[in-house]
């Protein structure tokens, strides 16, 4: 099974990167801080049995995962291309679409492992600090949806990597896209809050609607952010979030495949 070899190869490569551990460490530290918030502000209205999920997993975690997926996956194609390793893979009896698929799945799996670690950590730390945690399926759904959200970035950065052959350029453009989408979405929400009538239907097709809100909507917990959206009169719909992520990821994947098929090594 050649594709499994590619997945294993990509996974092993990512797990041996220093930045994987740096991001995991940063993720755990930030999670610790957010989980400690209810302790430092006793009057904060919280359900103690859900602190791990609401404060640990669903606050900064999706953002860190997005950054981590950019950092981990940024050199997946450019480095392989520039080092000439892709030339080696192209002389092996494995079709190019399987190389692309294997590397994408390997990258997604790498990010998922990081998400899994920090989700389990949030659960355990909250258990120790606040007692038994409820809504265990919420953790599982959060883990799956945060991992799936990273698919958007994994496929987009791979597309840019194949196009530009530069790790830095693809990472910067991906981050820029994230910032632009977030700011745009912020404008839409802020306009709603300020009573300015804008057409919010755009929001449903914005990729940020998918990757930002999927974890919140699937878990069914209204965080500060989702409440803000509801105040703005914009309903959160997990199926639209999911479709958004899958549609954009598929689009990026197809474009990547189109370019990858025509790629000539240096």
């Amino acid at each position: 099974m050649s594709i499994l070899s590619i997945v294993k190869y990509e996974l092993r490569w990512n797990l041996r990167k220093k930045r994987f551990f740096i991001f995991l460490l940063v993720s755990l530290i930030l999670e610790t801080f957010t989980i400690l918030i209810p302790l430092s502000i006793p009057q904060f209205p919280v359900v103690k049995s859900r602190i791990g999920l609401e404060f640990g997993v669903l606050t900064l975690h999706p953002f860190i995962t997005m950054l981590a997926s950019i950092a981990i996956v940024m050199n997946s194609f450019p480095e392989e291309y520039n080092s000439g390793h892709l030339s080696i893979l192209f002389t092996k009896p494995i079709k190019r679409h399987l190389i692309l698929l294997g590397k994408t799945l390997g990258s997604l799996l790498s990010v998922s492992i990081m998400v899994l670690f920090s989700t389990v950590y949030a659960f355990l730390l909250s258990w120790i600090l606040y007692g038994a945690q409820s809504h265990l399926t919420g953790y599982l759904i959060a883990f799956l949806s945060i991992s799936l959200s990273s698919l958007f970035f994994v496929t987009f950065i791979n597309l840019l990597g194949i196009l530009t052959k530069s790790s830095i350029a693809s990472a910067l453009f991906t981050f820029l896209l994230y910032i632009t989408l977030t700011v745009l979405e912020g404008f839409l929400i802020a306009s709603q809050l300020m009573g300015i009538r804008v057409d919010v239907s755009y929001l449903y097709v914005m990729p940020s609607y998918g990757f930002t809100h999927l974890p919140h909507t699937t878990v069914g917990i209204y965080t500060l952010q989702s409440s803000l959206l509801q105040i703005g009169g914009i309903p959160l719909d997990s199926s639209i979030c999911l479709i958004n992520i899958l549609a954009y990821s598929l689009l990026f994947y197809i474009l990547s495949y189109y370019l990858f098929r025509r790629l000539e090594p240096p």
Partner: peptide, 29 residues
């Protein structure tokens, strides 16, 4: 490809692997 062996001039093996891991990876392919 099954019957071809190719050693390029500038051969850059993945540096994060050991020699054996790299060779096993290619033999899997």
């Amino acid at each position: 490809y099954h019957k071809l062996g190719f050693l390029p001039e500038y051969l850059n093996f993945p540096r994060h692997l050991t020699g054996r891991e790299a060779l096993l990876f290619y033999s899997d392919l």
